[in-house]
Simulated scan of single mutants.
Amino acid sequence: MTLSSVTAQTGYLDNLTAEEEGKLQEAWIHILRLCGVEESVKHKTPDRTRELQQHLSDKSADVFRRRLWSFILADHPDVLVLRFLRARKWDVDEAMAMLVSAVNWRHERRLEEDIVAKGDSVGLAAARSADEESFLAQYRSGKAYVRGADRERRPVFVIKVRLHDPKLQSPEAMEAFILHNIETIRTMIRYPDEKACLIFDLTGFGLKNMDFHVVKFLVQVFEARYPEYLGVVLVHNAPFVFWGVWKIVRPWLDPVIASKINFTNSNADLARFIEQENLQSCYGGKDSWEYSYIEPVAGENERMQSEKKADVEAARAELVRQFEQLSVEWASLEPKSVASVQKVAERRHMAKKLAEAYWDLDPYIRARSYYDRAGVLGATGAVDYKAAQ
């Protein structure tokens, strides 16, 4: 396939109806007000800034602005906003409350400081806490990894549940491992291929592997914090004992997430979603690769301590300011009008510059991961899901 299936659906960046573009404009008016861009108050959209600020621990416009842009990463900013709009069925008020709450949650969870900036670089520390040791043990175990892409060009994230023992690490260590995986995969996916394929491999699964805390956490974060990141979920080789567990888990699922779940039991079942060339041989495919963790290397994160970081951040901040100004101008235009189409093109061009600026900044704010060391994720953001041969 040459194009992702999202290009055939409305509600995505390149295929918005006039009504959907209008909703996106409304959303940006709220965002711009929260960021302290005062020019946006002239628009007819009611000012809900104070109400939305109730979801924030710090109501400073500058603080929200910084946290929002650390959430956006390298994609077109509209892609993130559209995720929340689709998740709330285009109710702008609910979508913005959800987005603002997610921004605040990221701060409370210290995602930038403890998850993104540290990651598995804790493997280089002379002394590690029990949770840090457990965090590393998850990566070394091979219980979860990205390998290849599915037929929709989405990264395939494999979870081998039989390798998980909930008694071997604290819930906090598992949550950190999950969040680090999500944040790492977020650096790999690009519009229009903006979702992931998850395989829960239940081969050899027993009740000793069941971790209800992890399941609840996954459900919560994908529903409320990372909406619209799941493309399809494949539950593979579920044994008889699993179906009792499923009766408990099924009611926890949001209907949208539940609709993405497919049960597979054979190579033919998986081949409906993943081509043979991209399917590991352990599942009957032609890819003989097996996961082997690559340990962090001394000096790989040295730029995180560089004085140049401030200059790189300032360069990106200027592009953010320009994108915001273009958004102010675009938000006042009639959706799909000639003027709007032109402004959309200008914003697209600026978004491309922002993406390039992000990858300039990336080595100063994100610790290198297994996927950087394996060559899956390149220095300029290029992705090769089968780089590690």
Rank of each mutant, 00 (worst) to 15 (best):
V383H: 02
A388E: 15
R321Q: 11
R33Y: 01
E313D: 06
G285K: 13
I365N: 11
V338T: 11
D62N: 13
L230E: 08
Q342P: 00
R48Y: 08
V79Q: 11
L56M: 03
C282S: 14
P363Q: 08
R88P: 02
R66H: 15
E356A: 14
H55L: 14
E132P: 04
V219K: 10
K143H: 07
V79Y: 10
P363M: 00
I72N: 05
R88G: 01
G11N: 14
F64S: 00
M210H: 13
Y370A: 09
G36Y: 08
P192A: 08
K23W: 03
G123T: 04
E26Q: 15
V41H: 14
L34G: 02
G119D: 03
I294G: 04
V79K: 09
V116G: 07
D14C: 05
E356Y: 07
R348E: 10
P155K: 01
I261P: 06
E38F: 03
V122P: 05
I248K: 01
E194M: 12
I257F: 02
S134N: 08
I72C: 06
I31M: 07
L56A: 04
D150H: 09
F263K: 08
D165K: 15
R88A: 04
R66G: 15
S57M: 10
R128I: 10
L361C: 06
H236S: 06
T7E: 15
R48A: 02
K167H: 15
V215R: 06
V249W: 07
A176H: 11
C35T: 09
S266D: 05
S60Q: 01
S266P: 03
R110M: 09
Y385C: 14
Q220L: 03
N181I: 13
E313H: 04
Y385S: 12
W243M: 06
P227N: 06
R321V: 12
A357L: 02
A345P: 00
L24I: 07
L202A: 04
R366K: 09
I182G: 07
P255K: 08
M174T: 15
P363V: 02
R316E: 06
D78C: 04
A8F: 02
L32N: 10
D62Y: 06
A387W: 00
P192G: 05
R50T: 15
E152W: 03
P363T: 03
D58H: 10
M188I: 05
L124Y: 08
E132I: 02
A357S: 13
R153L: 15
Q280H: 08
L270K: 09
R67N: 14
L24K: 13
R347C: 10
W289C: 11
G244A: 01
F242Y: 09
R65S: 13
E39Q: 06
D78K: 00
F240S: 10
R162E: 09
Y358R: 02
H164F: 01
V37A: 08
R303C: 08
K247G: 03
V158M: 13
R154F: 13
Q54T: 12
M174I: 12
E112D: 15
R128F: 03
V158S: 06
F273M: 08
T2C: 10
V256E: 14
D131L: 00
Y370N: 11
T17K: 06
K195Y: 12
